[in-house]
Design a protein around this nucleic acid. Sequence first.
DNA 1: AACTAATTGTTATATTATTACATCAGAACT
DNA 2: AGTTCTGATGTAATAATATAACAATTAGTT
Lengths: 162, 162
Amino acid sequence: MTSHTELDQHTFEHNHNQCVSLALDTAQQLCNERGVQLTTIRFQVLSLIWESHKAVKAYELLDRLRPLQAAAKPATIYRALDFLIEQGLIHRVESLNAFVGCRSSGQQHEQLLLICKLCEQVDERAATDVMTALLEELQQAGFMAHSKAIEIHGICANCSSK
Amino acid sequence: MTSHTELDQHTFEHNHNQCVSLALDTAQQLCNERGVQLTTIRFQVLSLIWESHKAVKAYELLDRLRPLQAAAKPATIYRALDFLIEQGLIHRVESLNAFVGCRSSGQQHEQLLLICKLCEQVDERAATDVMTALLEELQQAGFMAHSKAIEIHGICANCSSK
DNA sequence: AACTAATTGTTATATTATTACATCAGAACT
DNA sequence: AGTTCTGATGTAATAATATAACAATTAGTT
Ligand SMILES: [Zn+2]
Ligand SMILES: [Zn+2]
Ligand SMILES: [Zn+2]
Ligand SMILES: [Zn+2]
């Protein structure tokens, strides 16, 4: 029997196992290179986040982590999330207070996040034209940007074709 | 003696009283046209938000409203904020869980918010080139956007020139 | 006045996140 | 081996943000 989560993954019509493998392998490799520890807890949280392309809430992660880490508390999750964000392995979706795996960790990348209201999946796009225009605008404004987050809410192509 | 808040407003080197008058007058006019009520509480909250160009937190607003409305509770503030957002009179700054007056209420506008880490002021810009590129990107992705929020954190021109 | 819808009062609670301090495990040093 | 240092985790408490539910009041309408 196929779970709801698995179905949702398939709406992208892609091999999600590949997504997960790539993400986890890349994470491990980046942490090695950087001399930081992808500990068991951090790896487990990253894996849980990567179970789908949906943004996940911290306390939902906590619930899902507890079977694996009986002692898990809010701080456990938030520490792991802080680490994963610092290392660029996940994104925080500000408008949802939720977290989603980064699909281009390692590469320098700005984020354009397309957040579907129906399937709740988050698509991350390079959107180089947008970012170029943005850089130009920032330059004109004399604004020195540290972080650039573009979060668009709406209906994804897949959902609107149904 | 000049308060810190007043000083901060002056960093824009503009007549903030004009900002406030324009914002409040426009708000009143729009509400009239739309047949919705800009009640005392809503007007007071909007005025408090407009005391500066900084984003303000809900519970800070609550503290500042209480001298005017002894019975004010969280719900009081959140209801007023909901109304003001619906009417496009303020923006919610997702990445700060805070609120800032909209400088172009009434006009159709997408928002590019430049959020300064030093002076905490929020600058709202039309950024038409960015928005054009964004629309193009969304079209390519087949994504039907309902809300577009671009929040950039960094150092504003004024602060970086000090 | 009577009715209706919108707004506000009030209480409780849900959700999201951080702080502080104790403990533990591994690496580095003596 | 013992000591020390560091980073990570355990644990408890609490802070900060936001919503739900229902009662009371007010503003418009008939
Ligand atoms: Zn996938
Ligand atoms: Zn969708
Ligand atoms: Zn001003
Ligand atoms: Zn500034």
